[in-house]
Design a binder for these strands. Sequence first.
DNA 1: AAACCTATTGTACCGAAGTACAGTGCCCCA
DNA 2: TGGGGCACTGTACTTCGGTACAATAGGTTT
Lengths: 201, 201
Amino acid sequence: MTITLLSHDIALLAHWQPLSEALPRITMDPAPLLDSLPAQSLVLCDLDCARLPALSDPRWLAWNASLRIIAASSAPRPDENVAALAAGFRGYAHAFAPVADWRQIVATVRAGGIWIGPDVMARLLGTLHFAVKDVGGAWREKLSPREADVAERAAQGLANKQIARELNITERTVKAHLGAAFAKLGVHDRLQLALLIKGVG
Amino acid sequence: MTITLLSHDIALLAHWQPLSEALPRITMDPAPLLDSLPAQSLVLCDLDCARLPALSDPRWLAWNASLRIIAASSAPRPDENVAALAAGFRGYAHAFAPVADWRQIVATVRAGGIWIGPDVMARLLGTLHFAVKDVGGAWREKLSPREADVAERAAQGLANKQIARELNITERTVKAHLGAAFAKLGVHDRLQLALLIKGVG
DNA sequence: AAACCTATTGTACCGAAGTACAGTGCCCCA
DNA sequence: TGGGGCACTGTACTTCGGTACAATAGGTTT
């Protein structure tokens, strides 16, 4: 099955080339092209494309009903991601993501699925009050109980001094536990620790 | 990597056989088996399996925290799908979906993703679009474009020096933008900023 | 023209975070 | 009876983050 590549960025077209057997279609005005594609066609669409309707444009709903369009953004944002999915896009990813990732995304969509990144999935789950807070909780097993206590609080935004008070230990001990946690988890500071523990980033 | 197949339906086990190099584990009581599997194991679990806990059973949360379980149903229903995701399952699909589809689902989950069908995704977005958008995009609108650039990178764990290099500005300017972002968003440091932007905590 | 927002940079300072190099005491396992 | 992991603490140090008090310049609004 051929893939239609839709972008005005030569570098991006080159990046995507390995995904598509056919040559890219060159067009200055994307709308008529989208209208003319056969049903079920797979399309990679660069959202930075000139003359592209806004995601809120109802035409996207029509196109996405007959086609399978994956959105690409050179600067992905969660809100744009959600808007794209709401507009019916089958996926949303960084335009210059590794080709291997793009292959995976394309394969998922081709199989009738929707590609959704961990970032947006985390928001969805959080919004739904899903009790999956410890999915990805492997970090805890790598730490001693006390280290986990400290790491958890640091990841919530507490200062060392606050953690010390809360656990009835000195700030020095907090630093010791945190340092050990950094080493064991392969991070360098509490922010990276938080992103790891919270399963984002 | 081996895949554990969990079903009491001989026909289904045969259907899944091509997915797994190893022979299926035969068990009458699934719970102990799930307890004993090594972390990160990939499991295909037939929800029609006898003696399986209900999806609301908290043990699923524990299992899904350490394993990667994909639910299969011979009669998929959207509500069951949502319940499965809420229980932490990494995917939900028709048990006798084509093997090619199952391969795709397994690949997606193995890559750390969650496989979600188009129908449920549409329902999720239909009901949650606005809530998610609020969580995900509100902060950006409160900041100037440049402040948002800096804040976004800080929330990813980059140091001021790295951000400065990336945006071709001095570290001082990064600090200025960050300070302004802190004030506008009502936080006091980059960690709280990250938690706010990432929509966690 | 004045007021305002934005983007940019400078110097200087303070406190928090993180690390290096220690030490003590407890418990468990070989 | 060691050795090792864990919990805890100390002093001293460096680096980073954040703020205070500035300045310059381009753009928009009133």
